[in-house]
Amino acid sequence: MRDRPAGPRLRIAWVEEWMSTLAAEILPGLADRHDVTYVTAGEELPAAPFVRVVRGRRRRHMNLAGFGLSRQVNRLYDDGLIDLAMVWASIGFGLRRVPFINLEGTSVYAEIELFASLVPWYRRVHFLPGLVHYAFPEMACNRRSARVIVPSGALKRDIVRLHRLPEERVAVVPHGAEPEHLACYAQREPGPRPGILFVGRLHFRKGILPVLREFVRRREIDADFYIVGDGPDRAAVQEAAAGDGRVKVQGTIGRETLKSILRATQVFVLPTYYEGFGLALLEAMASGHACVCYDIPGVREVLGDCGVLVPLGNAAALVDAVADLVRDGPRVAALSARAHERAGRFSWDDARSAIERIVRETFVGLESGARSRPRPAPQSQAGESGPEFRRT
């Protein structure tokens, strides 16, 4: 029987556009100890005992989804059904009156700042739509939130700097390695030749296309290259890989297929330009890969000295490092063992405990500050249409 923490049973709304890995890991335990309402526009639900599920409409644009979900959470609060909200990835930028904790996995604002610095000033106008659709909601959500939770110190520094928040308002809670990925290390099934793996969105921000083109140019590298994921660069990736039998473009695959590929490959590449944490990197480390990545703060924080870092944006240097590893089995084995051991230190149990502690501390602080401010009376009247509730 699990220990039940001291303190009141809180009424919490967890808000996200679609189910995140964080929700799948955190909510089963949180909903066992608190009354959690899950508010989403997605179809998937975490395996948690929610008191209700509130469905929002799927929207093409994040902004429209955010306004819709925020409106439903505002109503829950006004009707006295929740004490506070927990918002994933700034989707609650339209919340009013509702006290909330914002959980960020990355900073699109920081990404836009980075990419804008890499182009001439007259081309920076192309980043304006990204500022409107993503960066401004991120700014609004972080500045209005009672607390912010991020998975890395690197992301905390960006959030504090960009949104001018006091450092004590932003808490670092690293994500965890899943046991099934850690178990892959002892179940490795190497193929007839070395395997290289990339897992991520096929998008210019992830940097995979220049690396793939450089790999295809280097015909002497005797290894298979598995590319897992989908995105707007899918057609360009397939075009670059055409005619090269070493490259295996997998698209979107299921968990079991991914675990099979994790067991069969030895080298993982992450040529991303920006990461708030790098969950795919942690999964590769847990399953025992020698990892080759661009040297950026978020990656450096997760990987430590258990892999190979090359200068940001240098695809040729990254492929050189991969080629060296493919020819050096003992070094791959040593890096894999160190990465696996380091990944085991990242615990979802620790993350669950830390997040619940922050939730309770935040609630106590909000209650102390609101004693002289009465809660608004319920505004919904009989006969009004409310959000779609489904008890689970």
Rank of each mutant, 00 (worst) to 15 (best):
E361R: 00
L258H: 10
P129Q: 07
Q250R: 15
H126R: 15
I12K: 09
V299D: 03
F198K: 08
A171H: 05
G56I: 07
Y109R: 10
S152P: 08
E388Y: 11
G195C: 08
A333D: 06
R2D: 14
L281W: 03
E283R: 00
V237R: 07
A6F: 14
S336G: 01
L131N: 14
R75I: 13
L76N: 02
R213W: 02
F346N: 09
G191E: 13
S145M: 12
V299P: 05
A186G: 04
G200A: 01
A284P: 10
I261K: 03
G153N: 12
E220G: 05
F215N: 04
N102Q: 10
Y274E: 02
V364K: 11
D79L: 12
I112K: 14
H289Q: 03
L114W: 12
I101R: 01
S347Y: 00
A290Q: 10
P376Q: 04
N142F: 13
R55G: 03
R342H: 08
G298C: 12
V228R: 00
R201K: 15
G245L: 05
R217I: 00
L30Y: 12
I355D: 09
R327N: 01
I358S: 07
A135L: 05
G200T: 01
G251E: 00
D230L: 06
R390W: 08
H289K: 03
E367R: 06
F50E: 04
T106E: 07
E275N: 08
T106Y: 06
V54M: 00
G288P: 02
V302T: 06
D305S: 15
R11M: 13
V310R: 05
A242Y: 03
C293P: 07
T392S: 14
Y226V: 01
I355A: 09
S368R: 15
F93L: 05
S336F: 02
Y122Q: 13
V39T: 07
A183F: 00
R342A: 08
G369T: 02
V228I: 06
A24T: 15
W348L: 01
R342L: 10
E356W: 10
A377T: 03
E43A: 06
R234E: 10
P137Q: 10
N63I: 13
S107Y: 07
G66P: 03
L202D: 01
D222A: 14
L309K: 11
V302A: 06
G344T: 06
F93N: 02
T272V: 13
A334M: 10
M1S: 15
F198I: 02
S70A: 14
G105I: 06
V173G: 11
S336A: 08
Y185F: 15
R345W: 07
D324S: 13
A183H: 00
E113F: 05
R213K: 09
E111P: 01
D224K: 02
R57D: 02
R9T: 14
L45S: 02
Y38K: 07
P271D: 07
I149Q: 09
A241S: 09
V322I: 05
A321Y: 11
G130T: 04
V148Q: 02
